[in-house]
Computed example of a mutant assay.
Amino acid sequence: MGIISWIVLGLIAGALAKAIMPGKDPGGIIVTMLLGIVGAFVGGFIGKWIFNTDLGTFFQIRTWILAVLGAIVVLAVYRLVTGRKVGSGS
C-alpha cells in the first residue's frame, strides 16, 4: 500500500478505535487521527509477528481489522501514558 493509503486507513482506523473506546482524550481530533495512523502501522506489525500475515490491499478486511486493532492498542497505551483510564467516559 502507498503512503496515502496508509494515512487514509489510519485516519479511519483512529476514528473507529475512538468509537470503540470512547472517552475524552487530550489533543482532540488531531491526536486521535495521528494515533490512528500510528495504529495502522502497529496493526501491520501485529499481523506480521502474531498472526504471520502481511497487510493486504486497502480493500481487504484483514487490513482493516489489523489497522483498527493497532489503533486500539495505541490509544490504550496513549491513555495509560497520559493518565487517562481506558474506557473512562470523561
Rank of each mutant, 00 (worst) to 15 (best):
T32D: 10
L9F: 00
G36V: 09
L34E: 03
K48I: 07
L16P: 04
L66G: 07
G10M: 00
A17C: 14
I4S: 09
W49G: 11
R84G: 03
G28R: 11
I72F: 04
P22L: 04
V73T: 01
I72G: 03
I61C: 02
G87I: 11
V38W: 00
G47I: 12
G43P: 14
W49L: 14
A13M: 09
M21G: 01
G56N: 08
L11W: 01
V77R: 01
G44I: 10
W6S: 00
L11C: 13
T57E: 07
F51R: 07
I29H: 10
A13C: 03
F45W: 06
L80E: 13
D54P: 04
L11T: 11
S90L: 08
V42Q: 00
I65T: 09
I72D: 01
A19W: 14
T82R: 14
T82K: 12
G14S: 07
L69R: 01
V73Q: 07
G10P: 10
I61Q: 07
L69G: 11
G36T: 05
L35T: 04
T53L: 02
A40Q: 13
D25C: 02
G89D: 03
F51A: 10
S90I: 15
T53N: 01
N52Q: 14
I7Q: 07
A40S: 13
A15L: 13
A13D: 12
M33Q: 12
M1A: 05
G28S: 09
M21K: 12
S5D: 02
M33C: 15
I29E: 11
W64Y: 13
I72H: 00
L16V: 15
I61G: 07
L16I: 15
G14L: 12
L11I: 12
G43T: 14
A13Q: 08
G87D: 07
L9N: 02
V42I: 11
V8G: 01
I30P: 01
F59K: 03
L69Y: 08
V42P: 08
G28Y: 14
L55S: 00
G36N: 05
T82L: 00
V8L: 13
V86D: 04
G56A: 07
S5Q: 12
K48H: 14
I3M: 08
G39I: 14
G44K: 06
F51S: 07
G2A: 09
A67K: 08
M21Y: 11
L9C: 09
G27D: 10
L75Y: 06
L16Q: 02
R62W: 05
T82G: 05
I12W: 10
A19I: 14
G39F: 07
F41S: 05
R84A: 03
L69F: 03
F59T: 00
L9W: 05
T53S: 12
D54W: 05
G36H: 10
